[in-house]
Amino acid sequence: MTDTLHPIVILDPTAELDPIGRRPARRSDTLTGAIGLIDISKPRGDVFLDELERLVSARYPTVDIVRLSKPTFTKPAPADLRAEVAERCKAVIQALAD
């Protein structure tokens, strides 16, 4: 038979669509308004963010700090936290600690 000369046809094992491309929001070049500090709940994340809050408040007295935290670092941020960030914060800083 001539089968070996035929191209092998396989089935696509993927989801056949690229994940929807998400463009990161434009980075802010100033620190003004409400800035969220998100603790992802890793050990000593609070220590790091406390220090960061102190530095930001001293250097940018007009900035309002909003302290937020994820319930667990093991899962993506829940929808209500994402909504809160969108509603209350102009920018956020997330702390990854350990």
Binding site: L5, P7, I10
Partner: peptide, 24 residues
């Protein structure tokens, strides 16, 4: 009855190398 997209592996290609090369 198979809905999956068909991928033709060219005759000259080794299918194992092709699949590895495609990151699958």
């Amino acid at each position: 009855r198979l809905a999956g997209r068909r991928i033709r592996i060219p005759v000259a290609d080794d299918p194992f190398e092709f699949l590895a090369g495609e990151g699958l």
